[in-house]
Structures are given as C-alpha cells and as structure tokens.
Design a protein around this nucleic acid. Structure first.
Lengths: 292, 292
DNA sequence: CAATGAATGTTGAAATTTGCACAATGGAAC
DNA sequence: GTTCCATTGTGCAAATTTCAACATTCATTG
C-alpha cells in the first residue's frame, strides 16, 4: 500500500458510489479519480469496484477498504483535533531546564503554572549535562552566562542574577567581618571546585583572593550554601537565596561586576506556540517579585 | 487532513528521525520529503518536527501523528493481506443467479462447491426479475436464450438445454399417446402463460398446437411439472428433469429445434478472479454428468 | 421512442510535483 | 583544531499528475 492518497480516493468512491461524487468531495477532477482507482487496482492486482454507467459498486475488497479507510479518516480527524487543540491551549507536556541552583526560584513558578493549567504535565530537568533544546529535550531553558548564540534558539534576556558575599553569624563571631578587600587574605572562602567556572563572581574571587584561602570547594551550589551556613567560610550566594536565611551576614557591599545575566532560551520551532509563550509571560511576571 | 501521502511521509520521518532515512524508505528524494513536511506543517499550522543538523525530532504533535500513522499502516497492511488472500483462494461470498427452473441442477453443484471450500458463503439468487451482474448483484449468472451481448459481461456457452414432450402415464392411459403431430389437435397441453416467451420449445408449441388446446397455463416451471405429473396434459420438460420421474412418458422423439442454449455469464471485472474461475470450472465439470 | 441528464471514459495541454546537482551546516573522530 | 561524514536546504530541469473539453453510455421521463 504505497500511496495513501489513492486509498483516500478509493474510499470516497466507495462511500459515494460514483466517481463524480468522490471527485467533488475531494476537490479534484473526475478523471483524476478514475486514474487513481485504476492505479491502485493495478498495483494491488485486485478489483475494488465494478464499473457501470450508473457508478462504481465496491466489490468485497472495496467494501473492506471502505471500512478501513473510514476508520482511518476518523483517526486522522481526531489527530488534527488533538494537535490543533494542543496548539491553542496549554496542555500536554512542558519541559523546562535550568541550572539546578535556580530550582528554589523556578519550582514555585512551575508549580503555580501547573495549577493554572491543570491539563499540563510539567517536567523540570536539572542535571550536570546541558539539556539540548535542538533535540527536543526541553521546551524552555534558563541559561546563565553570556548570551547564547545558537542559530535555532530564540534567546531573550531574563533577569540579572544579583549575588553577594555572605558569611554566617557564627563565622563573623569567630573570625570577624572583613572590612576591606585587602583583609580577605586573612579569611576563609567557600567556592566552586571548577577552576574554569565562567561565572563572573567566581572569576572575581579567583583574581582577588589567594587560592590557598579558598579552603572549601565543592561542585554543587547547594553544598556551597550549606558550607556558608555552617560557617566554613565566606562565599557567594544569590541575594534572593541569602535573604531567606537571617543567620547570613552580607560581608561587603555587592559589586555590579559580580552580577551575571540569565537568559530565557527556546527552540525557534516552539517559541511561537501558545504553551511556550504562556509560560514565558507567566515566568517573567512571577520573577518580578524575586527582586525588591 | 487533506493529503494522506504527506501524513505517510511525516510518519516515516518521525519513525526514522531523519529526512534522508525516510526518503530512502519511501523511495523518493529527500527534497520531496522536506517539501512534504513543510507543506503539512503549513497547512495544519502546527510544528511537527524540530529541525537540527542531525535530523528531525518529532514534537508532541509529531509523536501523536507517529502513533496514529503507525496504526494506520498496520491497518492498511492487514487490509492488503485480506484482499490478496481473498484474491488467491476461494472464500468470502459467491453469488450465483439463474432461472429458478435450473435450481434442481444448480443447487447440488453449489452445495458440493461449498463443501470443497468451507470458507465460502454461497448465495443463490432466483427470482422473477433478472439479477444484474453489472451492479454486483451476482458474480455468476446462468442465462438462457440467445447469447447475451452486454459489453461488460463475459459470456461463454454452457450446455444445451435438451427438452422433450412428456405426459404422465395416467394421461396416456386416459387419452392415448399421439402418434403424429397432426394428432396433437386432439390433446391437452400444459405450457407457460407467457405468450411472448422466447424459449424455442414455447414458440414451437404456439406455432404447432392450436391455442385452445393449451388448456393449462402457468407462470412457473415447477407448476408445469406438477401439472404434467398430475395428468393435466402434455408439456415440455427438460430431459434431465423428466428422467427423474419414471411415471413420465416421452410423447414424441425430441426435435433439435426445441433445444435452447444456456450461457455462463460473469462480469468482466470478476471473471478473472480465482473464486469465479474455480466455480466455473467446477460447474462445467459437474455438468458433464447431467447428460448421458 | 426520442429527449434528457447523469454518469464514465479518453485525449492533449497546463500545472504541479519530483529528482538531481550542489551548497551549507554541524557533530564526531583522530 | 582539522578533516571527514551524514544531514539539511535550495535552484532548476524533467517527469508526473492534474485539469479541461469532449465523446460515449445508459437509465429515466414525458
């Protein structure tokens, strides 16, 4: 069965009983219909219709085809309905990925978004590796760093990630609070284990503080937070993150050069879909409350 | 969903994940595949695939289409299997029509044929009106008279219907047996009520015997037989029919001009099918035993 | 019984689709 | 980093399909 259009033509002829009627429904010339029928019969080597001057009467095989194609048309119509519906409202899956450190911000938004759209299934992917939009692994990505520049991706600025240098009250009580940057050489610092981290505050720390004073290093942002809270040293944290914990003390006034930008990235093929757009506007709206 | 071929193309792309792979399976150029995908997406206004350098990844809608089209292909393959199977062996329906007077001959043949092909459903149509092959009302017709000459029908000579003039022994005992044709004027005859009957023996009777001597007329062949058996008069019967009843006496030697030909007629579209051919050869084989 | 109308069937011209050649892209391996 | 390979994307000619107009057939109707 190499030509589904011919099946469709034969189906309409079987349904109508005449070539002309089928041609009108299909919106083609009746000669086309005749040729389709001749072609499919020749290819299968089976007569589907008995021809007479008053029309085409399906043979047993033709009746069988009629039933099958009827079901097929129903299936296709339902499919289109589902696809159109999916295009117009927000349902199905929404797959979002970000750095795991943003989870405390993103998860409440996703949760609320799901509550607004009960038909939606939310998948939030965080992990070591980057989930790739171009393979359909995610619909929306929240990325950090300099503006990504992939041709198939639609990138828009999201927020500026404001960070500060924090220590726990315990730490201040024990070692004092550094008053100047020069004083940093006498303190302990918590940072990422990745020496190539391109986060602006990481680079600033590497340039400003002697490496031997970075005495606690880990790969995961949650660990850094825990380390700072437990008094292991001074470390960078997002301001919104630090604000949640009253035991944290801002060591020095934040410097704008620490701040990095976050970007909202979508694949160009999905960017215009209602679902993705709905989520993007929702996300931007919610994020306004993240900064004072 | 106006173009089922494009659905099929999209299906293969979703299955393979690449345009090239789909093109190879479909036996078309990859440019064609790309154009089909573009066309169906444009028509539906829905993205089915995310394009990237390593291939096409189906979106949700694409996955949905994949499932539906997969089922469709299965259905079509099963359909072809059924149709081919039906073409190659003898099953389904076999619809035969004839003059009702031939039933005693035809029914045993049909019965035996059905026994040889247990999957077959036999429908034997006899009735006042002619069942028409060109509307698919029957697959095979056994017709009498001069060779039918319809363009869509395949006609082949079947047998010569040999008839004779019979009377019951009762009748002979009562009225004697006419020795010559001239003697007919003193006898009683049974015949059809149809004055326009074109059966050769009917015409011969109308020309040979005074109409007032045709004293028993009926529309049905069975009635004629019963009338002759009950001694109502002398009447024409098929020789095979008369041979079954020992109480019948052949009044005079049969004349060849009484005999009419029977024809096997099939619609041209069905004539070459295995089922019809199998029945025709079976019927001809069996009919050899009808004549001595 | 002739006229009518609705259907199929056939032919050449037009439009659409397809195939081919080549360019461009991006990932993977070395 | 460079090369290789598989893949997508595009312009143009060729092949195929489709359309339009006619001829034909057959049942119906007045």
């Amino acid at each position: 069965m190499d030509n589904w259009d011919e099946v469709r033509t034969a189906y309409q002829v079987a349904r109508m009983g005449t070539v002309s009627g089928a041609a009108e429904i299909l919106g083609v010339h009746h000669a086309t219909v005749i040729r389709h029928i001749d072609a499919i019969e020749a290819r299968l080597g089976i007569k589907l219709f008995q021809r007479h001057a008053r029309g085409y009467t399906p043979t047993e095989a033709g009746e069988d085809l009629l039933r099958v194609a009827q079901a097929t048309e129903d299936q296709f119509n339902q499919l289109v309905g589902r696809m159109k519906g999916r295009g117009d409202d927000v349902s199905g899956e929404l797959v979002v990925t970000s750095l795991s450190s943003l989870a405390p911000l993103v998860v409440p938004v996703l949760s609320e978004f799901q509550r607004v759209h009960p038909d939606l299934i939310v998948r939030y992917l965080t992990g070591d590796r980057l989930f790739r939009l171009e393979y359909g692994e995610a619909h929306v990505a929240i990325r950090a760093g300099s503006a990504p520049d992939q041709p198939d991706n639609v990138v828009q600025p999201f927020i500026t990630q404001e960070v500060g240098l924090y220590a726990s009250r315990d730490y201040i009580d024990r070692y004092g609070k550094p008053s100047t940057i020069e004083d940093f050489a006498n303190h302990y610092f918590v940072s990422t284990d990745d020496e190539n981290s391109r986060a602006p505050f990481s680079r600033w720390l590497r340039q400003t503080v002697p490496v031997e004073r970075i005495t606690f290093r880990c790969t995961n942002n949650f660990c850094i937070r825990e380390a700072v809270l437990s008094g292991a040293g001074i470390g960078f944290m997002a301001r919104w993150e630090a604000a949640r914990d009253p035991s944290l003390v801002e060591v020095i006034e934040p410097m704008p050069e620490w701040f990095g930008n976050l970007w909202l990235v979508t694949h160009v093929d999905l960017h215009r879909t209602t679902k993705v757009q709905a989520f993007l506007t929702f996300l931007k709206e919610q994020s306004k409350s993240w900064l004072p």
